[in-house]
Simulated scan of single mutants.
Amino acid sequence: MACEAQRSGTVETRRGRPRSEASHQAVLDATSRLLSESSYEELTVEAIASEAGVSKQTIYRWWKSKATVVLEVMLTGEAEIEIVPMPSTGDLRADCLTWIRSMLVEAFQETHVGMARSLVVAGLQGDPGTERLLEQASMWDHGPLAERLRESERAGELREGVDITAAASAMGDPLIFRMLTGAAPTTSWAESLVDVVVTGLLRPEEDAAR
């Protein structure tokens, strides 16, 4: 769930009218539920308003678009969009390779590319609340990739002091960039990316053996 600092940065409206915190949270909760049941493309502001029990005008008063609502939901950790599952076999390198190979198949479908582009546009629209969230949070703070890395950290497999968010970002951000440009990477490129990141994360074998 989102930390208090993150949520406090979202309760101010960009048009000077105070938000109802209950309605604000209802919109985030409704968006999260709808995303778990349908795709981003199928999601509409009308559906969010109906699910949250607020008017469409209320949503548009506080958010510029559907994408802005979804971006806030993701940045605050209210919802995680899991395109493909992350396996957990005890072998971090093998699990990340399985994950990224699946991502090459699923993430570069037209619907997911469209969602990624919409969310980037939402982040660039200049909304003060969104800008604060982007400064305070990262979509890689949570989610299946970050949790799998934390699992390896708890098992003592990673170097001391590894920044999990930075590690997840190092593996995920290049994929997002490729999605935005529409240039799907080759399997060998993706596997090399995993190899570079995981090699930098794992403890040296002599340390792990102690």
Rank of each mutant, 00 (worst) to 15 (best):
E106G: 02
E106M: 10
A107K: 08
A107Y: 05
E110G: 02
E110I: 12
E110M: 04
T111Q: 14
T111H: 13
T111N: 13
H112V: 05
H112G: 01
H112T: 04
V113C: 04
G114K: 14
G114Y: 02
R117G: 05
R117S: 14
L119C: 04
L119A: 09
V120S: 01
V120R: 15
V121L: 14
V121S: 12
A122Q: 02
L124N: 12
L124Q: 14
Q125V: 11
Q125Y: 01
G126M: 09
G126S: 04
P128L: 11
G129E: 08
T130F: 09
T130Q: 07
E131K: 08
E131H: 06
E131M: 14
E131T: 12
E131Q: 13
R132A: 13
L133R: 11
L134S: 04
E135P: 03
E135L: 10
A137R: 08
A137C: 10
A137H: 00
S138V: 01
S138H: 02
S138C: 02
S138R: 01
M139I: 13
M139C: 02
M139R: 13
W140P: 01
W140R: 00
W140G: 00
D141F: 00
D141W: 00
H142P: 00
G143Y: 04
G143P: 03
L145E: 03
L145H: 03
L145P: 00
A146P: 03
E147P: 08
R150H: 06
R150P: 03
R150S: 01
E151C: 11
E151Q: 15
E151H: 15
S152L: 08
S152A: 15
S152R: 12
S152N: 04
E153T: 09
E153D: 12
R154G: 14
R154V: 12
A155C: 09
A155L: 15
A155W: 12
A155E: 14
G156K: 10
G156D: 09
E157C: 10
E157F: 13
E160A: 15
E160D: 15
E160K: 13
G161W: 05
G161E: 06
V162W: 04
V162Q: 08
D163Q: 01
D163W: 02
D163I: 05
